[in-house]
Design a protein around this nucleic acid. Structure first.
Length: 104
DNA sequence: AAATTGACGGGTG
DNA sequence: CCACCCGCCAATT
């Protein structure tokens, strides 16, 4: 597996409880803002194996991006358990809940 | 070895 | 705000 992929996994694992990150932000932290698609792919294939808190990922608009209803509900449930608020449109207020990693 | 796959993002109209 | 287009990366098939 490539370094980039590892960094993506690390980045996701480092998202603290009660906060969320966008897919693009993860790609950026991992060193390649253009590798968003790969982030998505990782979630599909490796989220179980690497025990990733995938529920802390939302798209750039702050929406929960899962299509499958059950999985989406599961994500919302988990977020709410961490006191992340979700509005009627299934959106999270990024201003309040987005995790901004310490740069260094 | 080539094609496919994805839970995306930014720009445009 | 919505709809569409196209660029992008690497694990899998």
């Amino acid at each position: 597996m490539q370094l980039y992929t590892k960094r993506v996994i690390d980045t996701i694992k480092n998202i603290p409880q009660g906060k969320v990150m966008t897919y693009g932000q993860v790609a950026e932290m991992a060193g390649n803002n253009r590798g968003v698609r790969q982030v998505v792919r990782i979630l599909h294939t490796m989220s179980d194996a690497y025990d990733l808190p995938w529920h802390r990922l939302v798209n750039a608009k702050g929406e929960i991006s899962i299509k499958d209803e059950e999985t989406r509900d599961f994500q919302m449930y988990n977020l709410q358990q961490e006191s992340v608020e979700i509005d009627d449109n299934g959106r999270v207020d990024l201003k309040r809940f987005q995790f901004i990693p310490p740069e260094l």
